[in-house]
């Protein structure tokens, strides 16, 4: 789902290696076929590298932008425990962004470049974070639905072919499970609370259900890149498979909460043993991806403003570090060996 925009015109991942030695490409594919991990300095087709850079950086951007809709409620969390848990969750998301930028940097792109792509609007991030958090219940809905969907997507990637990405995902998955539980717990407390709280929870579900389903991206039947990504073990399941799994798991949870899903067509299909949903409005999804969702502008503006406002800080730190290095080399007489250092 963090790769929703991979198939847009302009994304150049080519299905076959064009102009690269057929032998090397075949050996590379053979490694992948036996589940060998590809590591940073290994030879890889340029298209594999570019696809990964785009996928990992979009994932990282999603985590970083995702801090905003939830961060929105930190100052208004209704209990000290909830406040602490929310801060910890948002902090985790920042950390996840860092693990992922880290992984992407092993492929030859810098954090500064990736960040610039995000701030300029050139890079995409998951559509879901362009929706506003309008009530405290939204925080519950996000943890339950959005993190739930993310977990579904992330677990298979723990086995992806690129070592640093797989390892980052293992770390992320370990931390993610608390996110979904805290969200569901909030919904449970609200659903069993006062009538006003129940209404708050239902309203949040009404607004977050469809966007959560859209997170998985359109049907892969419409994507020419899915096949190559699956061959390279970057993508392990189709969008539809993951979406269906999510629906089947989540509908009973909503029933347990005593909340109604905003889908009149939703029904259990005895024959297929799956829940069938109504039609997804993909035009809304496309609009959000293009930048016309409810909060796209605000999200990017916030990140841009923070980045600009922080420029003098980053410069000061770099300047100070430079001064310290100058002082250190002036203090050491030429020719003497430096002492091993413990950082102060």
């Amino acid at each position: 789902m963090y790769t929703q925009a991979l198939d847009n015109p302009g994304s150049e991942a080519q299905p076959a290696d064009s102009g690269e030695s057929g032998g090397r490409a075949a050996r590379f594919q053979a490694r992948i076929d036996v589940d060998e991990k590809i590591e940073p300095k290994d030879w890889m087709p340029e298209a594999y590298r570019q696809t990964l850079i785009r996928q990992i950086s979009q994932h990282a951007h999603s985590e970083v932008v995702g801090m905003l809709p939830e961060g929105n409620w930190i100052t208004r969390a209704p209990s000290l425990k909830r406040k602490a848990v929310l801060i910890a969750k948002v902090q985790d998301e920042g950390g996840h962004g860092m693990y992922l930028y880290s992984a992407a940097e092993t492929l030859g792109i810098s954090r500064a470049e990736m960040f610039e792509q995000l701030l300029s609007g050139a890079a995409k991030y998951s559509s879901i974070f362009n929706y506003p958090t309008l009530s405290w219940a939204d925080i519950g809905a996000i943890g339950w639905l959005v993190d739930g969907a993310a977990i579904m997507n992330q677990i298979p990637i723990c086995r992806c072919s690129y070592g640093p990405y797989a390892r980052a995902m293992v770390r992320i998955c370990k931390e993610e499970s608390f996110h979904q539980r805290q969200g569901f717990e909030i919904m449970l407390t609200l659903a069993h609370g006062t009538p006003a709280q129940r209404a708050m929870a239902q309203d949040a579900l009404n607004r977050w259900w469809w966007p959560s389903l859209m997170m998985f991206g359109p049907s892969d039947a419409e994507s020419k890149h899915t096949a190559q990504s699956m061959r390279w073990k970057i993508k392990r399941f189709t969008n539809d498979e993951l979406r269906q799994k999510f629906i089947d798991i989540t509908v009973p949870q909503a029933q347990f909460l005593g909340l109604t899903l905003p889908d009149e067509a939703l029904r259990w299909d005895e024959a297929t043993q799956h829940f069938q949903i109504g039609p997804i409005d993909w035009s809304e999804f496309q609009a959000v991806l293009k930048g016309n969702g409810p909060c796209n502008r605000e999200r990017l503006e916030a990140r841009r403003a923070a980045h600009d406002a922080g420029r003098w800080v980053r410069e000061a730190a770099a300047a100070h570090a430079h001064k310290e290095r100058m002082r250190a080399s002036a203090a050491v007489p030429p020719g003497s060996a430096p002492e091993p250092r413990v950082a102060p």
Binding site: S102, A103, R111, A318, E324
Partner: peptide
Amino acid sequence: NDWPLFEVFIRSRAGLEHKHVGSLHAADA
């Protein structure tokens, strides 16, 4: 003005070695 990239190694418990866990950016050590 860029903060350089550092690799991070953590010893999670006494008795174990330091393990590479990832990287981050910082201005100084």
